[in-house]
Structures are given as C-alpha cells and as structure tokens.
C-alpha cells in the first residue's frame, strides 16, 4: 500500500468507523436512539457522540480523522501538481484544511453535558466543515476533471462525479447541511448522507493514489 493509499484509507475508515462505532455503543448504552438514521433521522451525528463511552470514542476518533483529512489534502495537492496551477491548488487546499480544522475544533469542545457544551464553537465548526468541504471538493473535482483531460489516470472519476453531483443536488434541493443544536429530522438525514458521501470521496482516492509514494533520492 502506497503512502497515498494509506492516507485515503485511514481518512475513510477512521471517520466512518468512528461514527459507526459511536452509534453502536451509544444505542447499546442507551445514550442514542436506535433507528436507521439515514432514513429516520432520529438523531444527528453530534448527539450520538456526547455522552458515555460513545463520547470518548467520538472525540478521539473524529479529531484523529480530522488530522488525517489535513494530510489527505496535502497528498491531493501532490497528486495534482504538474496538472494544475499553484493558485487553484492553494485555494483547494486552504478550504479543505479549513474545513478539517473546523470539525476538529467543533469536536474538541463537545462535552457529555448538553448544557455545558460550547455550542457556538461546535455549530460554527461543524458548518465550516460541511461548507468548506463542499467548496474544496468542488474545486478539487474541477481540477481532477482538467487533469484527466490532460492525461492523468483517474480510475475513480465516475464515482467522484456521482458523489459531487449528489452533494450539489443536496445543496440545491435542501439548502445543504446546516448544523444546529436541535436539528429537524430532514436536516439530520441530510447530515448523515452528506457525511457518508464526503467520507466515500476521501476513499475514492485509494484507487487513484497507487503511485503516490515516499521516495528517497
């Protein structure tokens, strides 16, 4: 496994795995409601990871995942450099890293007690993640599209296209993901799906980055 593939896989497994394990532990311990959140929207992601052991797993896993996201954007920059101009890459990386830092800060301030949590930081951080990530992924998609036309092999292009299309459809149709303290069922459903799609987008690079390696010259 190349370095690039390691980062792509770790970004996906850690983020999605953390959410899955948190939800499983939360429902088992009675701190989260049991349902299919992708369909029912009975809970949002944040509330699954506040109380009890689920809270520890969520905070540890998501902060670690955010650190991997930051490296993911650095690897993406390396992969596209030579096919994209420096300014576009910088804009892409800036919004990607900003989004990851937003989620990192938003997760770090979560506490077991709802009343004690700094909701201002959490809500701003989570919204920065979803909105910053949408901008970064869109810029990324345009750069990947151009690079592919210029001859760069992009095995995951079809999946990336579908994911970007769905993310934008969600944004246009449902005004995207807007995280709040108490979210409606519809917003919660959108949040779960958007998070999954962003996670899969990170994973798709696993097939693109076979040759992104650390090499000594």
């Amino acid at each position: 496994m190349s370095f690039g593939q390691f980062i792509a896989l770790a970004s996906f497994v850690l983020s999605m795995g953390t959410i899955a394990v948190t939800y499983a532990v939360g429902t088992a311990q009675g701190t989260a409601e049991l349902c299919n959140p992708f369909i029912d929207g009975c809970t949002d992601i944040t509330h699954t990871g506040m109380k009890g052991d689920a809270g520890f797993i969520f905070r540890g896993g998501m902060i670690a995942a955010c650190a991997f996201f930051i490296v993911w954007w650095q690897v993406m920059r390396t992969w596209l450099s030579g096919h994209s101009n420096r300014l576009a890459l910088t804009v892409m990386q800036f919004f990607g890293v900003l989004a990851a830092l937003g989620l990192l800060a938003g997760t770090a301030v979560l506490l077991p007690e709802k009343s004690a949590t700094h909701w201002g930081v959490h809500v701003r951080g989570a919204n920065l993640f979803f909105q910053g990530m949408l901008i970064a992924l869109t810029v990324n998609y345009v750069l990947v599209f151009r690079a592919r036309r210029a001859g760069l092999a992009v095995p995951s292009f079809a999946v990336k296209s579908a994911l970007i299309l769905v993310l934008w459809l969600m944004t246009v149709a449902f005004a995207g993901v807007t995280v709040g303290i108490d979210m409606s069922h519809g917003k919660r459903i959108i949040e779960w799906w958007a998070t999954l799609f962003i996670g899969i987008y990170f994973l798709t690079s696993y097939w693109d980055w076979k040759r992104i390696r650390l090499v000594h010259y």
Binding site: G4, V75, T78, G82, R211, R213, V215, H216, Y217
Partner: peptide, 18 residues
C-alpha cells in the same frame, strides 16, 4: 531532505514534490 512524496510515473527532475 531528499525523502519526498512523489508520483512515481513522473521523472525525478519533473517531480511534483512536497
């Protein structure tokens, strides 16, 4: 200093490296 992240299909002199 000489250990870097690269795309292997590139030539070393043209490396997009970080």
């Amino acid at each position: 200093r000489d250990f870097r992240l690269t795309r292997r299909e590139q030539q070393p002199l043209q490396e997009a490296s970080l």
